[in-house]
Amino acid sequence: MPVSITNSKLIYDGLKACDVRLIAALPETWLVHLIRMADEDRAMTLVRVAREEEAIGIAAGAHLAGVNAALLMQNHGFLAAINPVVSLAFLYKIPLLMLISYRGHVGEKDPWQTQGGLVTEPLLRALNIPTWQLSAAHDVARQLKDAQTLAHASLTPVAVLLTRDLMWEDG
């Protein structure tokens, strides 16, 4: 599977450097290594959810309990979670660090991913969610830290889009 293990490790190490202690996740292809790393890390609480809305609630609970959380989901999972992003995270001023695999964008071969890919950035803009695209391996740790810093300072959700350039190694 050509999902980059090296860059997944960079992202995971970046989350650890942000003192993330709880990860709520729903698996998808690009996230498999990240989720495996969380699963193998005895110091990480990994919560595998059935649907992404749950992950927003779980991360909100962790925040109120004083634990840094991160979310791992596909962009289609983000679409499924928009209501609690609005009516829990924004309404109650809860910071969220959302790592979203950016499927359906340039280079996508799976037709079923493409519609969600087209609407991801317009929706993030419409929701006024600060968004970074992670594409350069050397900058991953800094960008994750900056995203978390803004989330905590503004008490809002922030989105980090994990791009094909970063996650995929075409053989």
Binding site: L22, T45, E53, A59, G61, N83
Partner: peptide, 21 residues
């Protein structure tokens, strides 16, 4: 804490708190 919206997620919030504390 009264979750005044986001119907369905009170249990998810409780789970997040329970695992964190």
């Amino acid at each position: 804490f009264y979750l005044e919206h986001a119907m369905g997620l009170a249990s998810s919030m409780g789970l997040g708190i329970a695992l964190s504390m």
